[in-house]
Design a protein around this nucleic acid. Structure first.
Length: 467
RNA sequence: GCUCCCUUCGUCUAGAGGCCUAGGACACGGCCCUCUCAAGGCUGUAACACGAGUUCGAAUCUCGUAGGGAGCGCCA
């Protein structure tokens, strides 16, 4: 029996959760779910200067909105300082770590000199074998990295990556104030939390050999590593605020369904034959970390939009209600009637790309238009049609029942009887009730609007349009 | 600068030596459907970075070159 899969997502709360982080979380989550394992959330907040509670909350909110529930945690590194100290003490005892009394100035000087010589800047190990100390200097603790030989990282996505130990220097694992550093905490945490699969961005690939060396010094076998390709901005440059390095919560605000965002993200670097649209369940069943490819992917907002619409068209109506209602509220309209909301979803979901637009397009169902599109008015409102408005109003008033099919029949009949193409009759009506000439089919629109409101808007329009 | 990683249509990708005159999707163009807008159907334009090898045969293997990215912090 193989050990249960345990993955972790370990963001540092120095900013919001963005697309890249969410994708990493998604892959960790999917992999754990796929294998009946556990998904652990760990907050890497050892940078006391830059970590904030707001950022932590944002990350939690973002993951919750996305539906990526963790099974354990969140664990905070700041609450584990005692444990780190304990491990460092042990390493000092058995000689895999040592105190270094170099000053920052000294190190800066060393770096500058190396750079000037065209060398890779790195610590030269000058305190590695010393046992004395330097009065007045608080030492840092460094890990004693092997001097020669190689470290082989067996990466699930990149394959075998070999590093030479002589390229690696003795990194600092505890600052002079005693606080532990990232590369060390990760190792201890992954070890203590029994993480079996470390899935993270490939910007960490270069950290991996040192982490593996530390793990070895601690007497542990390395976990399985999977380094995911980066996500680039639409122009192929590094993701920045302009591109989509915005909080994932902003996607919620813009009217995206989380399952659509996740679907978009899962296809960045991963594929399953020719399939483009995945439900969460399908993703879970089909996903395998071994199918992830190596190259960075550019973010494409058009495709995300398309996917969002596809998911809206496929979603159960009930699932669409709360986000639509939320968007409507943000647009200033409170709606209680869920049946009506469902009908609106039905009428609009194939004509908009997101819920925010859906709410905007739905507004006329709740508020009569304040103005009419002038261009459309010039084009569609003719004396011929206006002459029919009396008859139209009369027939509408008498129509039984007030349903889309009945309305359809009525409009068709009226147009035919007067030798008009249906469009000639319908566009002015559309303009009268919506204020514009874009809406769902007119029969469905009027059916949803109701008889009373329809008649009142027709009358208002007629008054506004009559010379 | 050094080390590591990456390289198929504009973009996301399929492709694991012959199935490839390179497939799908988004976007873009055309046609159809049609009361508007969409959605949908059909269809078109468009790619193996370059150069050497290996092989009967290479998008697929090897080596170079070029381009891009990451790391080299008492940041994570």
């Amino acid at each position: 029996m193989t050990a249960a899969v345990r993955t972790r997502f370990a963001p540092s709360p120095t900013g919001f959760l963005h697309i890249g982080g969410l994708r990493t979380a998604l892959f960790c989550w999917l992999y754990a779910r796929r294998h009946g394992g556990r998904f652990i959330l760990r907050i890497e907040d050892t940078d006391l200067e830059r970590s904030t509670d707001e950022a932590i909350q944002q990350i939690l909110d973002g993951l919750e909105w996305a539906g990526l529930a963790h099974d354990e945690g969140p664990f905070y590194q700041t609450r584990r300082f005692g444990r780190y100290r304990e491990v460092i003490e042990a390493m000092l005892q058995e000689g895999s770590a040592y105190r270094c009394y170099c000053t920052k100035e000294e190190l800066d000087q060393l770096r500058a000199a190396q750079l000037a010589r065209g060398e890779k800047p790195r610590y030269d190990g000058r305190w590695r074998e010393r046992t004395d100390s330097r009065p007045g200097v608080q030492p840092v603790i460094r890990f004693k990295n092997p001097l020669d030989g190689e470290v082989v990282v067996e990466d699930v996505v990149h394959g075998r990556v070999v590093f030479q130990n002589r390229e690696l220097d003795d990194l600092i694992i505890a600052r002079s104030d005693g606080s532990p550093t990232y590369n060390f905490c990760v190792v201890v945490d992954d070890m203590d939390m029994d993480i079996t699969h470390v899935i993270r961005g490939d910007d960490h690939l270069n950290n991996t050999p040192r982490q593996q060396n530390m793990l070895e010094a601690l007497g542990r076998r390395p976990p399985v590593y999977a380094h995911l390709p980066m996500i680039l901005g639409a122009d192929g440059a590094k993701l920045s605020k302009r591109h989509g390095a915005v909080s994932v919560l902003q996607y919620r605000d813009e009217g995206y369904l989380p399952e659509a965002l996740l679907n978009y993200l899962v296809r960045l670097g991963w594929s399953h034959g020719d399939q483009e649209i995945f439900s969460l369940d399908e993703m879970r069943r089909a996903f395998d970390i071994a199918d992830v490819n190596k190259s960075a992917a550019a973010f494409n907002a058009d495709k995300l939009s398309w996917l969002n619409q596809q998911h809206m068209m496929r979603a159960p109506l009930a699932r669409m209600i709360w986000p639509l209602r939320w968007q409507l509220e943000r647009a200033g309209v409170e709606v209680e009637d869920e049946v009506r909301l469902e009908q609106i979803v039905l009428a609009l979901r194939e004509r908009v790309k997101n819920l925010k637009d859906m709410a905007a397009q739905a507004l006329f169902f709740f508020r009569a238009p304040l103005a009419y599109d002038e261009k459309a008015q010039r084009k569609h409102v003719t004396p011929d049609v206006l002459a029919l408005w009396g008859a139209l109003a009369g027939e509408l008033a008498a129509l039984q029942p007030w349903t889309a099919p009945a309305l359809h029949e009525l409009l068709n009949g009226l147009a035919a009887a007067n030798g008009l193409a249906l469009g000639k009759l319908v566009q002015p009506i559309r303009l009268a009730v919506c204020g514009a000439v874009v809406s769902p089919p007119i029969d469905a629109t009027l059916a949803l609007l109701g008889r009373e409101e329809t008649l009142s808007r027709l009358a208002r329009a007629k008054a506004a349009w009559s010379p």
